[in-house]
Write a protein that binds this DNA or RNA. Structure first.
Lengths: 196, 196
DNA sequence: GGTTCACATGAACAAACGTTCAGGTATCGA
DNA sequence: TCGATACCTGAACGTTTGTTCATGTGAACC
């Protein structure tokens, strides 16, 4: 084999691992296949990662940070709560479409494998900005009065479901626009003004 | 060991398998553990199921039929589309809470393991009644004009996400009532009457 | 040329897995 | 008591897996 830089080899391994882990799940994924796809020998992987678990964790943490930065980058800019919400949803959906493999992996393995605490923390941090947007919207009079915490949970859960469905089924396409609209105005014709 | 009826043994195996599969996922689940929990020997399992895959499939198919019957039982009764929708959501949420293990298993393994076609068919059949409800609501004037297919997809995806979140996080509790309300009236204060 | 260093290899090992099978046991009708 | 039947056992087998390690190779410096 050609001589390569350590950095390049590591990158190759990470990419291959992301492929294999997301296609097969952690348990079924096998180091030999990752090595093959990365164009390196089995032993080679262990030069860069202590073991399978470390490889997996490293992967997940990288991507999490990435997603988090993406969301942070688009928040705080917009003026109205409606706009903020739209941006929030759009950022997530677009990121998810770009990184299907990561999404699949993350949802598949969430709550089962190691590092559960980190995962819960991650999700909690995802909800926080959403809750803020809703509170802002209520205060500004854009949104109806509601329990911001509950609604944030519902929206986050729905978003997860939408992303999951799109990642799983190629023929499920839900645009940020139509999702935002649905979340904003609901189904009823008269906007449910009879309710509190 | 005590002598048991074949039927009882089979039941024990199915229950144990559901536990183990949903906790560990298909790949990591191991026959010896299932046997232990079921209170039978490894060899014993193979008296009732050809192999691991058949055991898994049998499990999944049983539960799917069960859920399907549940949904079918509560549809068609109600009068207004709003009521129908509420029933639909409630049935799913309640079933999901009762059978967390199955839900976890189903979502975890969807699109990855064998029998993918059956799974897609299952999801398509889930969406159909929902779409009908929406069309009914539009015709009756209860719901705003919208693309019923798209909205059905969004609602189904959201429902999946809500169920997933509740199954994964014990502290995420979303009642059918609050979910229904949210889907019906959305977030905006004025119901978005400016939109088409 | 010799030495050092970073990078790479894949046979070998131990553990864990799904599955098989030769045999064992309780129950019951004859 | 004697099969016959239904139910059950777990050692054994072959395979696959994660991981290790003795060994190899090319480039850079002296």
């Amino acid at each position: 084999m050609n001589k390569r830089s350590g950095i390049e080899s590591k990158k190759r391994i990470i990419n291959a691992a992301l492929d294999v882990f997301s296609m097969q799940g952690y348990a079924k994924a096998n180091m030999r296949e990752i090595a093959k796809i990365a164009g390196i020998s089995i032993g080679g992987i262990y030069l860069y990662f202590k073991n399978k678990e470390e490889l997996y964790k490293s992967l997940i943490n990288d991507r999490r940070r990435d997603l988090f930065n993406n969301v942070a980058a688009t928040s705080g800019k917009s003026i109205s709560a409606t706009e903020s919400l739209s941006n929030f949803l759009t950022t997530y959906l677009e990121y998810a479409l770009k990184h299907k493999e990561f999404i699949l992996l993350h949802i598949r393995e969430h709550g089962f494998s190691f590092d559960i605490d980190k995962k819960r923390e991650f999700f909690r941090q995802q909800i926080k900005p959403l809750e803020k947007i809703i509170i802002k919207g209520i205060h500004s009079g854009e949104f109806r009065k509601c329990n911001a915490k509950d609604i944030a949970k519902i929206i986050m859960a729905s978003l997860r479901g939408v992303i999951l469905s799109m990642a799983l089924d190629d023929d499920v396409v839900i645009t940020p626009k139509i999702l935002t609209e649905f979340i904003l105005i609901g189904l009823l014709k008269n906007g449910g003004e009879g309710k509190k």
